[in-house]
Design a protein around this nucleic acid. Structure first.
Lengths: 101, 101
DNA sequence: TCCATTGTTCGAATATTATCGAACAACTGA
DNA sequence: TCAGTTGTTCGATAATATTCGAACAATGGA
């Protein structure tokens, strides 16, 4: 299992991060990851097809929001909090703070 | 000139706001408005066709980011800072703080 | 009233995304 | 080595967005 490519914080693009978070499915993933610190893809699909989820994880990875690494047959995902904070201070927190109401 | 409809802060949707800001043209508009407090559509197009800009302003209005009102033959736009701050505290500031590098 | 200015709306073409089944790849355990 | 589990990749389809010219609407001034 070859590791995924994750962008360096210097290469994060604000527009891409915002776009990645503008999808309800992906925002839900990020919110979940903010609470558990780490979760497999399977734990994060809401009964959705794996191919769909794989797409969303890729968008999250490419934007710099999420880090994915293989552990056995599963892929573990985590939020890149520190990297995001260093590049876009306060952004992630402001988004996570919103409990939608 | 009938006034545009602007959503109430209670009806702001985080995903929509993030999506509106994920477009470079719209983000540029918002950044500009953050500095001048008020500007006409004409001041904000970068030589782009008016019909294109009109579309972007509508997205910004519908998401709650921008308020547009008619003054004579021109339309003035302003950032809905207070409304955004009340609904998504810190979000706009975190985005505006990023000077992209 | 006639005209120039400022934007909106309409319609169509193009581009991007989302979704999901099917096939494939990596790993583990028996 | 074989089977089961977990995800990825591929390919196609459907849905959404972007872009922009052309026609239209509202305003203000000459």
């Amino acid at each position: 299992m070859r590791p995924f490519k994750h962008p360096h914080p210097d290469d994060f693009v604000l527009e891409r991060v915002l776009y990645a978070l503008s999808d309800p499915v992906r925002l839900e993933i990020v919110r979940h990851l903010a609470q558990v610190a780490e979760a497999s893809c399977g734990e994060l699909d809401g009964g959705r097809p794996k191919s769909s989820m794989s797409h969303h994880f890729r968008v999250l990875r490419d934007s710099g929001l999420v880090c994915t690494y293989g552990v056995g047959t599963t892929h573990m995902n985590s939020l890149r909090r520190a990297d995001l904070e260093s590049r876009f201070p306060g952004l992630l927190q402001a988004i996570l703070d919103n409990t939608d109401a």
